[in-house]
Nucleic acid binder design. Structure first.
Lengths: 179, 179
DNA sequence: CTGATCTTTGAGTGTCCATTCTAATTTGAG
DNA sequence: CTCAAATTAGAATGGACACTCAAAGATCAG
């Protein structure tokens, strides 16, 4: 994969996979569908990726890391974190859908994705916990509980936002911060 | 299906389907797997159910209605509703997993299940809204928003409870009621 | 006991899937 | 321009899937 053509094809495959995952989940993401959307033949696909699983994992990794962009910042507030998440879900709906569909469904049914998701979830809780401690103080234990509540709530919100187009995510998130 | 043998076989098929859905989602729920677990041959399966889809839908319907047992009661409180949900998730983990897995995977990818789920979600919000109005008053609009927030949060909690065995659902739900 | 009806069996069907293979074509460094 | 390496095409393979079918067996009302 050192020629320009290969690099471009690889990008088209990833774009198609992302789109298919967001639209119809793993079930709709067949190699044939990817090839159709990327306008290539299976031979090209397998010249650039060793398996379908590898493309899917690549896109899922991308989606998971997009949930928490940038490293932890020692001055970020809880509101910053919540707003960053809301912005992610509303401005990158395709990747957000991939995250919810594949991460959550895969997390529930596939061990590898499940572990990866749990690790990611714990690091998110940790980041929220630090922000809560900086902002409102209290015991570490109490902050941890608050953080878990916040993260779980946000995930629930995102799911409903994807399921129900009328769900007003920004407003609900704002209300969440008031309490 | 008027003979005893048929009725018993039907029950075994449903039990196997429930278990497989809870364990590995739709992907793991193949007709072959159902037949193995129920110790029957495909012919028997198709004598009692017209298709795999029909069994899955039967189990999903069962799971959806199990989330809100009993009709709306004009004296139920918000705490009652929250506790009923927590009890459902903790005491019927198999069916709860079916609800979450199919809700997320099917709801996002399959139109029929998605619509059914959206309707169910709206009736749940309605039930919460009424309880909130009775209890704390306020405008209908505000109560609706509060209700949506509660339902979304509870769904997020249930997901994390299924994903992370350490997540303390009853305690988090209790804390949710305090605020 | 009998026989109409229900149930079960298990091999078989067609379809779709991920993946492989060989040969042809395109690329770009020297 | 040359040629080794990268890329592509597209038919072919094997396996898993949902589902069918004809024949054998079990059930139970009368």
């Amino acid at each position: 994969m050192t020629y320009r053509a290969g690099i471009a094809t690889r990008a088209r495959i990833l774009r198609a996979t992302r789109s298919l995952l967001a639209e119809g989940g793993l079930e709709a993401t067949t190699v044939k569908a990817i090839c159709n959307m990327a306008d290539i033949r299976p031979g090209s696909f397998y010249n650039l990726f060793p398996s379908k699983e590898e493309v899917v994992l690549t896109v899922v990794r991308e989606a998971i890391s997009a949930v928490d962009p940038g490293g932890p910042d020692s001055s970020e507030t809880v509101a910053d974190l919540v707003q960053a998440y809301v912005r992610f879900v509303t401005s990158e709906p395709v990747i957000a859908r991939v995250y919810l569909i594949v991460a959550v469904t895969g997390g529930l049914t596939d061990r590898n994705i499940g572990k990866r998701l749990l690790r990611h979830h714990q690091s998110r809780v940790e980041r929220f916990r630090r922000a809560i401690l900086r902002e409102t103080g209290g015991s570490t234990r109490r902050a941890e509980e608050k953080a878990e509540l916040l993260v779980a709530t946000l995930t629930g919100f995102a799911m409903h936002a994807v399921l129900n187009p009328d769900f007003d995510l920004p407003k609900q998130a704002e209300r969440l911060l008031e309490d």
